[in-house]
Write a protein that binds this DNA or RNA. Structure first.
Length: 344
DNA sequence: CACTTGACCTGTCCGC
DNA sequence: TGCGGACAGGTCAAGT
């Protein structure tokens, strides 16, 4: 699910907790989602201090004091959940009960054990295992291992501090039920626009990104539908299905419209609406409210700001016409057949 | 080359 | 209540 506003929301949330923490231990399942050599993880992740967390398009980058970075893509169903105490608890991404339920669960792919910088020396002395606190984690991982023991699955691999031996100050869970997401370790200098991100278009909310630049980017694909172009990460980085539909509704443009049929005025309007819906998404904390499922398991807010997305069969907020759903660019697409007329 | 479609996975929901 | 099929907010490789 996560698009730019959701990923940005996660970044802001984790930014309150992760910087200056030490990654004391890590374990992961399924090497496809974390295809680094074990030596690299051992050498550059374990014991590293988290320096900062930033975002490019839909990816999160955690810079480490070892001059390596963890790059995370949540794809459709990824989540990041930080757990320390009741007060320090944050999660974001795909809206499922894993945001609030006991972790790890069957969707958990990576678990990080975090320690506070100042607590390093203390933890060495604490030889008394706290089985209640973390024995449960080890047990759950064993369950996951059995469940996932199929051809492409790897065994859980473990690095650094034994997560079952002592209680960690905090945990970071990377969950992904659909296994499209991934986490990679790269030298920090390669985790930059020059290398890893070179094929991505501009950040739509960047201050120096103008309507003129947006127009130029879009018009490089005159024969494609405008929706396909908005979803193309090399045109504008970070837009996904929700915000594409929302922006097109705002600009009163039919999603199937070929770019060559659009006037510059229409594209300028689309640029404004796109930035608006992305900013609105961020201000609402993403489409997935972090209280989507609250502590009691009750459903919370979800997509409260959407004007068309998943509103098929309901009246358009502008004209009352029933919103339709079709398929454009291979994706479920929502639009008002009256406000958004395809030119021919 | 420009553009579209299928595959990657698992879980859920809907109709029979 | 069970079962097959369609579908899900992303991105590539493979296909037209």
């Amino acid at each position: 699910m996560p698009e730019l506003p959701e990923v940005e929301t996660i970044r802001r949330g984790l930014n309150n907790y992760l910087p200056d923490k030490i990654i004391a231990g890590l374990e992961y399942d399924w090497a496809k989602g974390f295809p680094n050599t074990t030596a690299d993880v051992e050498q550059f992740v374990i014991g590293a201090r988290i320096v900062r967390i930033w975002r490019r398009a839909k990816m999160l980058i955690i810079d480490l004091s070892t001059n390596y970075s963890l790059i995370i893509h949540l794809k459709m169903t990824g989540q990041l959940v930080y757990r320390a105490s009741k007060k320090e608890h944050f999660g974001g991404g795909h809206p499922s009960k894993s945001l609030v339920d006991k972790l790890p669960d069957r969707s958990t792919r990576v678990v990080m054990c975090l320690e506070r910088t100042s607590q390093n020396s203390d933890s060495q002395k604490n030889t008394q295992p706290s089985r209640d606190a973390t024995g449960g984690i080890r047990q759950s991982l064993a369950v996951s291992r059995d469940v996932d023991d199929k051809k492409d699955r790897n065994q859980w691999r473990h690095f650094g501090k034994n997560l079952s031996a002592r209680e960690c100050a905090a945990y970071l869970f990377f969950n992904d039920q659909r296994k499209f997401g991934w986490m990679r370790l790269l030298p920090t200098n390669e985790a930059s626009d020059q290398y890893f991100f070179h094929a991505l278009g501009p950040e739509p909310l960047a201050a120096n990104f103008s309507d003129v630049a947006f127009c130029q980017q879009v018009r490089r694909h005159p024969r494609a539908s405008i929706k396909a172009v908005l979803l193309n990460q090399s045109v504008v980085a970070g837009v996904g299905n929700i915000y594409a539909d929302e922006a097109l509704w705002g600009a009163k443009i039919h999603p199937s419209t070929k770019v060559s049929m659009l006037t510059t005025g229409q594209l300028n309007t689309l640029f404004i609406k796109l930035r608006h819906v992305l900013s609105l998404g961020i201000s609402k904390g993403g489409s997935t409210d972090r209280n989507y499922v609250d502590a009691t398991g009750k459903e919370g807010k979800y997509l409260t700001f959407a004007k068309v997305f998943r509103r098929q069969g309901q009246p358009c907020y502008r004209c009352g016409t029933i919103i339709q759903k079709s398929r454009v660019a291979g994706r479920g697409t929502h639009f008002c057949p009256r406000c958004q007329v395809e030119p021919r």
